[in-house]
Simulated assay, not measured.
Amino acid sequence: MPNLALNRLSGMVLGAALIVLSAAGSALALDPNASVSKERGPFDLFKLGFKAYREGNKQEAVEAYRYAAEKGHTGSRWALATMYADGDGVVKNDFEAFKIYSEIATQGVEPGSNDTGFFVNALMALADYYSRGIPESPVSPDLSQARQLYFQAASAFGNAEAQFRLAKMLLSGEGGEVNIRQAKKWLNHARREGHVGAMGVFGNVLFEEGQTVRGLAYMTAALDTCEPRDRDWLQQMQEQAFSLVSEDERRTALALSADIRKGAD
């Protein structure tokens, strides 16, 4: 099973910005002659950055996001950090990204705020950095801190990816004690939210506990519905389990997997 690195969060600058801008309504449309200036308000700068990024003017986007970030705009901070993390329009600089994500996490978020998505993604990015550390920087691997951040995103915000990553750490004992019961709980939450990887790992845990048919059924349902990026590790896990059961158990599991795919679980 692969490590889920920060690049799983990349490519979201446009999507996250679009959600916020759409929520603001058409009354906030940009003046076509608008230009980046420090004197503009933070949300205007955010819109300018979004427009420039969408049009491929990434240097202008960085400038707008940076000015807005200096004024405390969370979405601009997140967009700028993610560009540094991905080396998108700027020289890749993970430590700079880490510092900006940390500012977002320290700032917090009001319940129900439009900034919630940016805040949760900042927590996820920080957890990933703590999982592996940042070479040639003060950020060393700290699995305990990573686990704590995943727990915050999983419990307070119900983030399925955080629930999945937290469960994996609970299963392996990374950053703390092994806790199979808690891992199953978080995997179950995540797979009910449609996280296919969580469904597969949930099935594998059940299989190892002796619920062979049910476990194989979940692994098979996950394999049948996964994205190409997850196919290799899910297939390896499912095929290994498949080889260990009888023909009757295989047939029963395949039938049950069809029900699971339909949501009848």
Rank of each mutant, 00 (worst) to 15 (best):
Gln59Thr: 07
Ala154Leu: 06
Tyr67Pro: 01
Ser144Gln: 15
Asn3Cys: 12
Ala24Ile: 10
Ser35Glu: 15
Ala64Lys: 06
Phe202His: 15
Gln148Asp: 11
Lys262Asn: 15
Thr220Val: 10
Gly41Trp: 02
Tyr101Ile: 10
Glu136Arg: 04
Ala105Glu: 14
Gly11Val: 06
Ser76Glu: 11
Thr106Lys: 14
Ala85Leu: 11
Ala198Asp: 07
Leu206Asp: 12
Leu45Trp: 14
Leu80Val: 12
Met237Ser: 04
Leu256Pro: 02
Ser137Tyr: 02
Val20His: 08
Asn179Leu: 14
Asp248Gln: 14
Ser10Asp: 13
Ile100Met: 00
Asn188Ser: 01
Gly112Lys: 06
Tyr129Gly: 05
Met169Glu: 03
Leu149Glu: 09
Val36Asn: 11
Arg66Glu: 12
Gly89Val: 03
Thr225Met: 07
Val196Ala: 01
Phe118Val: 08
Thr82Gly: 04
Phe202Tyr: 15
Tyr101Asn: 04
Ser144Tyr: 04
Trp78Cys: 00
Phe157Leu: 08
Gly56Leu: 09
Leu21Val: 02
Met1Pro: 01
Arg192Leu: 11
Leu254Gly: 03
Glu227Met: 06
Tyr129Glu: 10
Val120Cys: 11
Ala27Asp: 14
Val205Gln: 00
Ser76Thr: 11
Tyr218Asn: 11
Ala190Asp: 03
Pro141Cys: 10
Ala221His: 06
Glu209Thr: 12
Asn159Gln: 06
Gln148Ala: 15
Phe242Pro: 00
Asp94Ile: 11
Ser113Trp: 08
Ala160Phe: 01
Glu249Phe: 01
Arg191Lys: 12
Glu177Cys: 01
Asp86Thr: 05
Glu208His: 06
Leu223Gln: 14
Gly197Asn: 10
Phe43Cys: 08
Glu60Ser: 12
Ala125Ser: 10
